[in-house]
Simulated scan of single mutants.
Amino acid sequence: MGHMTTNLVECINSVLKGARNLVVLALRIKANMQRAGNIVVQRFDRQNEVFEVREMPNEKVLVVDLARQTCDCGHFQVERLPCRHVIACCANQRLDWQLYVHDVYMTTEVRKVYIFEFVPLSDAETWPAYQGPALVANPALRRTLKGRPKSTRYLNEMDSRDMHSPRICRLCDA
């Protein structure tokens, strides 16, 4: 790190080097744990598992309901993973945040995808003829492969002035 490079792929690889062997779930949880440090649990009802949290930089107040598995930010409901607010509540009350990870992320559930056998496709010549609608390509959307690409630059008054005068070669003045 700290080296300049002109290769974009090298830049991306150097940034993602630490995350290369982690699963997506671990990356999301790690990011939420880091961001949970700026959240303060203000009030809570431990019996009903309802918490009021405040994000410190912007003073935003949100309600987390662990019993219903909801958070005002919406990420907890959509992703079915503990958001940073849920992780802050769990840390405050010494609860295990892993209880709020949906079963769909469990290794046993992921392995169920690969239980079924699949039949390899036969040769394409043995497939039945296609009976659906015929697709017709729009020639206006086709890319031209030959020649120099057309400029998409917006022209200004300096460009229009240059277009009216004849072009002169700077090497031979012809």
Rank of each mutant, 00 (worst) to 15 (best):
L25V: 07
V50H: 02
E79V: 00
P139N: 03
I12V: 15
N7K: 09
H164Q: 14
T108V: 06
H164A: 15
H102Y: 00
C71E: 00
F44G: 12
R54Q: 08
V113T: 14
H102E: 00
L95D: 01
L171F: 15
Y154D: 12
V119P: 02
L25D: 00
G132N: 02
H102K: 03
Y130S: 00
N48Q: 10
Y100W: 09
R153D: 14
T144F: 03
E117W: 01
R28K: 13
T152Y: 04
K150C: 11
G37Y: 08
C73A: 05
F116K: 15
G132W: 00
V61C: 08
R46C: 07
R28A: 06
A137M: 07
D45I: 07
G37F: 05
T126A: 07
L155G: 01
S14A: 13
R143C: 08
R142C: 10
C90V: 04
M33L: 12
T5D: 15
Y105L: 03
E157L: 07
R170E: 12
L95S: 02
A124I: 12
R68Q: 13
L99A: 08
G18T: 07
C71S: 04
S14E: 09
N7E: 10
P133Q: 02
V78S: 14
A19L: 13
E109S: 13
H75Y: 14
M106D: 09
V61Q: 08
I115L: 15
K150M: 13
Q93N: 13
M4W: 12
R28C: 07
L95I: 01
M56D: 12
V119T: 09
P139S: 06
R153F: 11
A129E: 11
L62G: 04
P128I: 03
E109V: 07
Q42F: 08
T126I: 09
A124F: 10
G147M: 00
S14W: 08
Q69W: 09
T6I: 05
E109C: 12
V9T: 15
I87A: 04
A124Y: 10
C11F: 08
